[in-house]
């Protein structure tokens, strides 16, 4: 293979890995949008909050330590004197999942329940409020400093892959092999597993059918005895778990910090591409944007001075809005009279 081709392949591969992340965040949006018609602006902050909580448990932080110290003049930060020894990672993940489920319950109880039958824009505004609230609440609970997240997931370039790809180049060139981060591969594998599990769950279980039923027709769902409130709690819980997975992946890469919540902004073009109501759309859309922005940067970037990754996704989305507003897989909106 020529060097040119190999380099392009490498870019595509890395694009796919980034795309998986975008897909995950977009997936959280789609789940909630389908079930409750809410465009959940807080999805990104949910990623941040989940990751903060996980790190907090894992490193043995005391929640609201700062608040407690200010009020009582104490100096508590960790509940174990040994800073490195918080809690087993697995246990921390389980506890974080429980926190996210609790959060879903609170959102239903104090937000959604009071906004039933309101216009979508009002629900949207409510989730903006929720995003700000969670951001502040997360800070208060766990502190605002940047925290490394280490769950023991391997990271760094894969030597094996480098060796394998090195032999693909034409014999005389000095090709050193393809770079791929093992962490990205793990992220991709976990994301794929998550999507498979969710799909199986929604296809073959009672609650899965109820979720699809609610997404399909609220009125009919009520008639067969499905409680919308229960479904909302379940959907927000699932979105919370998806957020946790996304949060772990991004957090392992670049630390848990505020910018994590901004990946939600990248999900928007993904949704415009994939359609707001399509789960396959979210996945494919994420991959297209991931690959697209990397390839664009690789080919066109040098001509325009680089940094195209910041805006490419939005421009692509804009084109989609003009030519295919319902997205790749979204249902065409036809009013039946």
């Amino acid at each position: 293979m020529s060097l040119e081709l190999l380099n392009t392949l490498e870019v595509i591969l890395n694009g796919l890995m980034t795309g998986v992340m975008y897909s995950l965040v977009a997936l959280g949006f789609v789940l909630i949008f389908k079930a409750s018609g809410v465009f959940n602006y807080a999805q990104g902050v949910m990623c941040l909050f989940a990751a903060l909580t996980l790190v907090g448990f894992q490193t043995g932080q005391i929640p609201f330590a700062h608040l407690i110290n200010v009020i009582f003049g104490t100096e508590y930060h960790h509940w174990s004197s040994d800073i490195t020894g918080g809690m087993n990672s697995f246990l921390a993940i389980v506890l974080t999942v429980i926190v996210m489920i609790g959060f879903a319950y609170i959102v239903e109880r104090f937000l959604l329940r009071h906004l039933v039958n309101q216009a979508p824009i009002i629900l949207f505004m409510a989730t903006i409020g929720l995003a700000f609230f969670m951001e502040g609440f997360g800070d208060l609970m766990w502190g605002a400093n940047i925290k490394p997240l280490d769950l023991g997931i391997p990271s760094g370039g894969s030597f094996w892959w480098e060796e394998v790809t090195r032999t693909w180049a034409t014999a005389d060139s000095k090709y050193i092999g393809m770079y791929i981060d093992v962490l990205d591969v793990w992220a991709a594998v976990i994301a794929v597993l998550l999507v498979i599990v969710l799909t199986l769950f929604s296809q073959f279980t009672k609650t899965g059918r109820a979720l699809r039923a609610v997404a399909d027709d609220h009125q009919a769902a009520l008639t067969v005895g499905i409680s919308l409130r229960t479904i909302w709690v379940i959907v927000w819980s699932i979105a919370g778990i998806v957020a946790l997975v996304a949060g772990i992946m991004w957090g392992s890469k670049s630390g848990v910090q505020f910018s994590l919540s901004l990946i939600a902004l990248k999900a928007l073009p993904v949704l415009i591409l994939g359609g707001f109501t399509s789960i396959p759309g979210a996945i494919v859309g994420g991959l297209i944007i991931g690959v697209g922005e990397k390839l664009f940067e690789f080919w066109i970037g040098p001509m325009v001075g680089g940094a195209t990754e910041n805006w490419f996704a939005y421009v692509l989305a804009l084109f989609f809005l003009m030519f295919r507003p319902q997205g790749l897989y979204g249902e065409k909106i036809i009013e039946r009279v």
Partner: peptide, 19 residues
């Protein structure tokens, strides 16, 4: 008619049994 249009006949009936 208020069916779950995207779901199969079988799934519609199974959903009907949810109670």
């Amino acid at each position: 008619i208020a069916l779950f249009k995207g779901m199969s006949t079988l799934d519609n009936l199974m959903t009907g049994r949810i109670t």
